[in-house]
Simulated scan of single mutants.
Amino acid sequence: MENWLINIINEYGYLGILLLIAVENVFPPVPSEVILTFGGFITHSSRLTITGVVIASTAGSVIGAVFLYGIGLQIDVSRLESIVDKWGSFLRLTKKDIYRADAWFDKYGPWTVFFCRFVPLIRSLISIPAGMSNMNLQLFLALTTFGTLIWNVVLVNLGASVGSSWEDIVHYMDLYSRVIYVLLGILLILLFVLIAKRRRGK
Score class of each variant (00 low, 15 high):
V34K: 04
V34P: 09
V34Q: 04
V34C: 08
V34G: 00
V34F: 04
V34S: 06
V34M: 07
I35N: 00
I35S: 04
I35E: 03
L36I: 03
L36F: 00
L36M: 14
L36Q: 11
L36A: 09
L36H: 00
L36P: 03
T37R: 07
T37N: 08
T37D: 07
T37S: 14
T37V: 13
T37K: 10
T37F: 10
F38P: 11
F38S: 02
F38A: 11
F38C: 11
F38N: 02
F38L: 12
F38V: 11
G39A: 04
G39T: 05
G39Q: 00
G39H: 07
G40R: 11
G40W: 09
G40Q: 07
G40I: 12
G40V: 13
G40Y: 07
G40T: 10
F41K: 02
F41N: 14
F41H: 12
F41P: 06
I42H: 12
I42G: 12
I42P: 13
T43E: 05
T43I: 05
T43M: 05
T43F: 07
T43R: 02
T43P: 08
H44V: 14
H44G: 14
S45C: 02
S45M: 11
S45E: 15
S45A: 11
S46C: 10
S46E: 10
S46P: 09
S46F: 09
S46R: 12
S46G: 11
R47S: 14
R47Q: 14
R47Y: 14
L48E: 04
L48M: 12
L48D: 08
L48K: 04
L48Y: 13
T49K: 06
T49L: 05
T49Y: 08
T49I: 00
T49G: 00
I50M: 01
I50K: 03
I50P: 03
I50S: 02
I50R: 02
I50Q: 03
T51C: 12
T51R: 09
T51D: 14
T51Q: 14
T51G: 15
T51A: 14
T51S: 15
T51W: 08
G52F: 00
G52R: 05
G52Y: 02
G52E: 00
V53A: 03
V54A: 10
V54Y: 03
V54K: 09
V54N: 10
V54H: 09
V54L: 12
V54T: 13
I55Y: 07
I55C: 01
I55F: 02
I55Q: 07
A56V: 03
A56D: 01
A56T: 06
A56S: 02
A56L: 00
A56Q: 01
A56C: 06
A56I: 06
S57P: 03
S57A: 15
S57M: 07
S57Q: 08
S57E: 08
T58M: 00
T58S: 14
T58L: 09
T58G: 06
T58E: 07
T58F: 04
T58I: 14
T58Q: 08
A59P: 05
A59T: 09
A59Y: 06
A59C: 12
G60H: 08
G60P: 09
S61D: 01
S61R: 00
S61K: 06
S61W: 00
S61M: 05
S61G: 15
V62A: 03
V62I: 15
V62Q: 01
V62G: 01
I63Y: 10
I63D: 03
I63Q: 12
I63A: 15
I63E: 11
I63C: 14
I63L: 15
G64Y: 04
G64M: 05
G64P: 13
G64C: 12
G64R: 12
